[in-house]
Design a binder for these strands. Structure first.
Lengths: 245, 245
DNA sequence: CGTGTCCTTGAATGGGGTCAACCTGAGTGG
DNA sequence: CCACTCAGGTTGACCCCATTCAAGGACACG
C-alpha cells in the first residue's frame, strides 16, 4: 500500500496542524533561513503527515509527486535486488529532505524506521516556490551535499569493508542516530543485514562475537548496549571515522 | 606533489584563456542558465587549469580553497584505506562540479583519468557570487542531485554485487564515458579494481572469462572492445540499469 | 499450549583474497 | 640490434570468510 495522491486516503493528519514556530527541525530543515514572509508562504504549501514505524512513504519506481522534509523520526532509503534482497542506501533524520523535483518517480523505497512526521510539498508547488525564492536552494544544496558526502563515506565502507567492519559501522550509526540514552539502542538483525549488505546469519555471528569480546551486550532481542565505544569504532575502521566530519 | 595554493607553481595555464562562448560544457555546467551579465561576472572569477592524465588536483584531507567545474576530460573521486587500498567513489565529466564550499578540506582524492580542463573558483568568490546570484544554486543543485543518485546506484551495485557484476558494471561505465568510437575503450586493470572494490587478480580472471564467453575482446593491454553489449549489461544487472537515466 | 516470528548455531560450499611464479611488451642503454 | 629491466598483467595454489541450507532455540501472542 502506498501514497495514492490523496493523503486523506490513509486517515493520516492532513494540512499543517503543527505550527512551524514549534517545529523541532526549523533550524536545520530546508525552510531554515527563509525570511518570515517567505516562511509563511512556504508553510502554507505544506501538508503534515505522520508515518508509523515500518510504514512506507514510497516504493522505488512509483510515481512520487511530492518531496518531503522530515520533522521527527527517521526514514530509510533502500533498493531491492531481483533476488529478493534489499540494500539500505542511507537514512534521513529530522531536518533531512527526501525526493527530487527533477524526477517524477521515486528512485528508492522510503520507509519509516520509527514513527515519523513529515512536511510534504507537491513538486510543482516546491518548484514554483524555488523560482520565486531561490534562496531556498541554498539550504537544500547544503542538505544534499551532506547526503552526498554521507553516501560516499558509506560506499567506501561497503566497498572495502569486511563483514565485521560493516556490522560495526552499522551499530555505530545506530548509536549516533538514537540520541544518547544510557548506551542502549534499538536494533533489528534484518535491518542491520540490509544496511551492511551481508546475510542475517552473518550479522548474528558477528554480534555474538562482539558480545564475547565485551564490546556490546544484548540485554534483549531488540536492544543492544554499547560497552566499549572505542573498540567498536576501531573495528568499524577509518571509513567510519571519515564520516564524522 | 599537490596543489600548493598557487596555481602558477605548476606552470599550468592560469587566467581565463578560454572564452566561455566556445566552452563545450556551457550548457550543462554550473554556469548554464546564468543571464549574460551574471555569466560575464562569473567568468571573471574563473581560473582555467589543465591537468594531464594521472595528475592529482587534491588529496583527501588537503586544504582545498577552491571548487571546480570540468570543461573537458574526466576526474575520479577516491579514498584510501589504511591497508594501502583505494576505492573510486565516482567520476566527474564535462559539466560536472567538484568541491564543496561548506567544507574547507577535500574529502576525496581528485585525479584526472584523462587530460582534463577545469575552471577553478575560489570558495570565497563562489560563495559571494552565489549570494548575489542565488540562481546558480539551482543549477548546482541539479548537478549534485544527479551525483547523489549516481552514487546511490553505485552503492547498491557494490553493496550487493558479485565480482562479475562489479567488473561488468565498471566496463559498462567505461563504455559510456568514452563516447562511442567503434566499440574500443581504454582500460586499466588497476583502475577497474579500484572502482569495483575487488583485487586486481580477480579483475583479470573475470576479464579473461568475458573474453572466453565472447562478450569482449582485448586487442591490446590497455584497450577492450565491446562485442556483446547486451550480455555485459545483463551481467552488470539491474543495479546498472537503474543508473541509466 | 500451540503457533509464528525472530534469532542462533552448525555444516557444507564456494567465491574471492593473497601469495607467488611467470609472462609480455615497452623502453633503455650498450 | 640485442640484452636487460621493469611495470603491468596473467595464472595457479591455497585458504579464509561469508553465504547458504538446515535444524533448533527463545519468546510473544492468541
Amino acid at each position: 500500500m502506498y501514497y495514492s495522491g490523496r493523503l486523506e486516503a490513509h486517515g493520516e493528519v492532513a494540512g499543517h496542524a503543527m505550527a512551524c514556530a514549534s517545529c523541532p527541525a526549523r533550524d536545520h530543515a530546508v525552510c531554515a533561513g527563509l525570511d518570515p514572509a517567505a516562511r509563511g508562504a512556504f508553510e502554507r504549501l505544506a501538508r503534515h503527515r505522520r508515518l508509523r514505524k515500518g510504514q512506507t512513504l514510497a516504493w522505488e519506481g512509483d510515481d512520487m509527486p511530492y518531496v518531503a522534509s522530515v520533522v521527527r523520526g527517521r526514514l530509510t532509503l533502500s533498493r531491492h535486488a531481483r533476488d529478493g534482497g534489499e540494500l539500505i542506501l542511507g537514512t534521513v533524520g529530522p531536518g533531512g529532505f527526501v525526493g527530487d523535483t527533477t524526477q517524477q518517480r521515486a528512485t528508492n523505497n522510503i520507509v519509516a524506521v520509527t514513527d515519523t512526521e513529515l512536511c510534504l510539498y507537491s513538486k510543482a508547488d516546491f518548484d514554483r516556490f524555488a523560482v520565486a525564492h531561490p534562496e531556498i536552494n541554498t539550504q537544500l544544496l547544503r542538505t544534499v551535499l551532506g547526503d552526498l558526502e554521507q553516501t560516499r563515506s558509506w560506499l567506501f565502507m561497503i566497498g572495502r569493508g569486511t563483514a565485521s567492519e560493516r556490522v560495526a559501522s552499522v551499530l555505530m550509526e545506530f548509536a549516533e542516530d538514537d540520541g544518547e540514552g544510557p548506551g542502549d539502542y534499538a536494533i533489528d538483525r534484518t535491518q542491520i543485514a540490509f544496511s551492511a549488505g551481508v546475510a542475517m546469519e552473518t550479522v548474528s555471528r558477528h554480534l555474538t562475537r562482539f558480545v564475547r569480546a565485551g564490546i556490546i551486550a544484548l540485554p534483549s532481542r531488540d536492544r543492544f548496549r554499547l560497552l566499549d565505544r572505542d573498540a567498536l569504532s576501531a573495528i568499524a575502521g577509518q571509513a567510519h571515522a571519515a564520516e564524522l566530519h
